[in-house]
């Protein structure tokens, strides 16, 4: 554990909190991509299958995994029941079949090991790297986003971006660390996908302006 990893995980928790808070207070999930949320649930379920099989890592690890799966499922539940009338499927039209298919192909081509668990882990890593696309696509379609939604996207992007200095730290100082090539490559790709968003967030939202595409 190092400061970057800790801040990254904290940022992930904050993003979940912001999203739930936005929905609860505005009684609406408008501007939030249901498809991205479904992809995240798929990501956590496939990645954390090891909750039931692998040797115990740490209380921290187990607790976070449960929090991510549970909060993701709860978000889907809210969006498909209570706040369903506020979701507009007509602007949430990204074809997630390609993301699911592409991630599966990558996982089958380069699995860390040829086991079901390792293939599903790799699948979840690739899928996570692109799971934000339906959300970004939705923002692009509407040309703007509520400030609270941009805070959510920023915190979620910052989580993986902070994993990058974490990997560098581990590579340099942690003798026991095993760096996972797939996670690093996918993590870099994921951060790259956010770069445009980060730029607009930084130049507009941070200066108190509305998030609006040029």
């Amino acid at each position: 554990m190092n400061i970057f990893r800790m801040l990254g995980d904290l940022s992930h928790l904050i993003s979940i909190f912001i999203l739930l808070h936005k929905m609860q207070t505005s009684k609406s999930c408008s501007g939030v991509s249901f498809k991205s949320q479904v992809l995240y649930l798929v990501v956590y379920v496939f990645r954390y299958l090891d909750l039931f099989t692998n040797p115990f890592m740490s209380y921290y690890n187990t607790l976070m995994k449960i929090v991510f799966i549970a909060s993701s499922a709860y978000t889907i539940y809210l969006m498909s029941t209570v706040f369903k009338p506020t979701h507009d499927p007509a602007i949430d039209t990204f074809k997630i079949e390609y993301l699911l298919g592409g991630s599966l192909v990558m996982a089958l081509l380069f699995p860390p090991k040829w086991t079901f668990m390792e293939i599903s882990w790799a699948f979840s890593i690739w899928l996570e790297s692109v799971a934000i696309l339906p959300q970004l696509f939705m923002v692009q379609r509407t040309g703007e986003a509520e400030t609270i939604t941009t805070h959510y996207i920023f915190a979620l992007g910052a989580y993986r971006a902070l994993y990058i200095p974490n990997w560098i730290w581990r590579y340099m100082f942690d003798k026991k660390a095993k760096l996972e090539t797939i996670a690093v490559v996918a993590g870099l790709a994921q951060t790259l996908l956010y770069s445009d968003f980060f730029y607009i967030y930084w130049t507009k939202v941070m200066k108190g302006k509305k998030f609006q595409l040029p």
Binding site: D9, D50, N54, P55, M57, N61, K176, E180
Partner: peptide, 10 residues
């Protein structure tokens, strides 16, 4: 160093 099975990152 002992070998740890599985993935320690989230």
């Amino acid at each position: 160093a002992e070998k740890v099975e599985g993935h320690d990152e989230l």
